Amino acid sequence: MIRTFIAIVAVIATALPISAFETTATSAYVIDQTTGTVLLSKEAEIPLPPASMSKLMTLYMAFEALRRGKADGGLDLNEMLPVSEHAQSYGGSSMFLRSGEEVSVEDLVRGIVVQSGNDACVVIAEALSPDGTEYGFSRLMTQRAQEMGMEHSTFTNSNGWPQTGHRMSMKDLAILADRLITDFPEYYPLFAETEFAFDNRVPSNRLNRNPVLSMGIGADGLKTGHTQEAGYGLVGSAKQGDRRVIFVISGLETSAQRAQESQSIVNWAFRQFTMRKLASEGQQFTTAEVWMGSEPAVGLVAKEDVSVLMPALAATQFQGEVIYKGPLSAPIAKGDTLAELVFTLDGLPETRVPLVADRDIGPGGFVSRVTTAAMILLNKVIQGPAEAS
Results as ranks from 00 to 15, higher is better:
Leu173Ile: 12
Ile175Cys: 11
Ile175Glu: 12
Ala177Trp: 03
Arg179Thr: 02
Ile181Thr: 09
Phe184Ile: 10
Phe184Asp: 10
Tyr187Lys: 06
Tyr188Gln: 11
Glu193Cys: 04
Phe196Ala: 06
Asp199Gln: 14
Arg201Ala: 10
Arg201Phe: 04
Asn205Cys: 08
Pro211Glu: 05
Pro211Ser: 08
Pro211Val: 05
Leu213Phe: 03
Ser214Lys: 13
Gly216Met: 08
Gly218Arg: 03
Ala219Thr: 07
Asp220Leu: 02
Lys223Gln: 12
Lys223Cys: 07
Gly225Asn: 04
His226Arg: 10
Gln228Lys: 13
Ala230Lys: 03
Tyr232Ser: 06
Gly233Trp: 03
Ala238Glu: 01
Ala238Tyr: 01
Gly241Val: 08
Arg244Gly: 09
Val245Cys: 04
Val245Thr: 09
Ile246Met: 10
Phe247Glu: 10
Val248Glu: 03
Val248Asp: 01
Ile249Met: 07
Ser250Asp: 14
Glu253Phe: 02
Thr254Asp: 12
Ser255Val: 10
Ala256Phe: 14
Gln257Asp: 15
Gln257Tyr: 07
Gln260Arg: 14
Gln260Lys: 14
Ser262Val: 04
Gln263Arg: 15
Ser264Trp: 01
Ile265Asn: 10
Ile265Gly: 10
Asn267Tyr: 00
Ala269Trp: 02
Phe270Met: 06
Phe270Glu: 03
Arg271Val: 00
Gln272Arg: 12
Phe273His: 12
Phe273Leu: 10
Phe273Pro: 07
Thr274Ser: 14
Arg276Asp: 05
Lys277Leu: 05
Lys277Ala: 11
Ser280Val: 02
Gly282His: 10
Gln283Asp: 13
Thr287Leu: 01
Ala288Trp: 02
Val290Trp: 07
Met292Phe: 06
Met292Lys: 15
Gly293Ala: 04
Gly293Phe: 09
Ser294Tyr: 11
Glu295Ala: 15
Pro296Thr: 11
Ala297Gln: 13
Val298Arg: 04
Gly299Tyr: 00
